Simulated assay, not measured.
Amino acid sequence: MKTRRTTVALAGIGLGASFLALGPAATAQAGQNICTPNSKTVSWVQKSSSYALTNKVTSYDNPSGGKYKVSRTLKSTKKVSSDWSVTAGGKAGFSIGKVLGSLDASLSGSYTHKKETTKAETVKVTQTLTKKGRYYFYSGRQTAKGTWQGYKCDRGTKWIKVNYGTAKSFGPLGRGVVRCGEKVSTKSMAYAVKKKYC
């Protein structure tokens, strides 16, 4: 699995969707080339990312605010997968690696470029707690999905849509601990956990 960026899929909690142009510019001006003849490109009509908790979330209360090193073993509760579909037009030279690679490059995170399903993984999370409050131990993956269109360049003057379909992917396993009341990034898995459980 390719992982060139580091960002750590609460099913149903979206991180936003991007609506892009339906494809490359259709036609060049007379005598002007806009693309390499017979080259291919992927355009995304819609795409989004979210978080899926793949392991059972466990809480821990620290009522006094004392310093404690706490470990929790989180059992696997969910698997996620990566895949694609071609709704119309056939593959026409668009491999799953090309489509998922394009999805990866167009979203924040780092997602697999091949078809696969995660294994059931028991995860151990350890954290030193120093503040008073309730903590949640979690583990999961960032996921991505979208609707794609494939384009082929003719003789260099026009992009032609040749196929379209859907795709989904997932990123590396992430884990952590979040305390109710603490400030965390709204684009993090910790925020998704805090929003649901606190």
Results as ranks from 00 to 15, higher is better:
Ser81Pro: 13
Lys114Met: 11
Leu22Val: 15
Leu10Lys: 09
Glu116Leu: 10
Asn55Cys: 04
Lys115Glu: 08
Leu100Asn: 06
Thr143Ala: 14
Ala52Trp: 09
Gly176Cys: 05
Ala120Gln: 11
Asp154Thr: 03
Ala11Pro: 13
Lys183Ser: 15
Leu20Gly: 15
Glu116Thr: 13
Gln32Leu: 08
Val162Asp: 04
Gly174Met: 01
Lys183Gln: 15
Lys158Arg: 10
Ile96Phe: 12
Thr36Leu: 03
Thr157Asn: 00
Gly176Met: 04
Gly23Met: 01
Trp159Cys: 02
Gln46Leu: 13
Arg5Cys: 09
Lys91Trp: 14
Tyr197Ile: 05
Ile160Gln: 05
Lys194Gln: 07
Val123Ser: 02
Ala120His: 08
Ser18Glu: 12
Tyr111His: 03
Thr117Pro: 06
Lys168His: 12
Arg5His: 10
Thr130Val: 13
Glu121Gly: 02
Met1Arg: 12
Val125Cys: 03
Ile13Ser: 11
Arg134Ser: 06
Ala190Leu: 05
Leu22Gln: 15
Gln46Val: 14
Trp44Asn: 01
Ser82Ala: 06
Ser49Lys: 04
Ser81Phe: 12
Arg5Phe: 08
Gly12Ser: 08
Leu20Asn: 15
Leu103Trp: 01
Lys47Phe: 09
Cys198Val: 07
Trp44Asp: 01
Ala120Leu: 12
Gly101Ser: 01
Asp83Ala: 13
Ser102Met: 08
Ser64Phe: 12
Gly140Arg: 01
Thr27Arg: 11
Val123Asn: 02
Lys115Ser: 13
Lys145Thr: 10
Lys78Leu: 12
Val42Gly: 06
Thr6Val: 15
Ala17Tyr: 06
Val177Thr: 07
Ile160Met: 03
Gly150Ser: 10
Val193Thr: 01
Lys158Ser: 07
Lys183Val: 15
Leu10Asn: 13
Cys35Met: 01
Ser106Cys: 12
Ser76Arg: 00
Val123Thr: 03
Tyr111Leu: 03
Ala92Phe: 09
Ala88Thr: 15
Thr27Pro: 04
Gly174Gln: 04
Phe170Ile: 05
Gly90Gln: 06
Gly101Met: 03
Ile13Glu: 11
Thr87Asp: 08
Tyr136Ala: 00
Thr117Met: 09
Pro24Asp: 02
Thr27Met: 10
Ala11Trp: 07
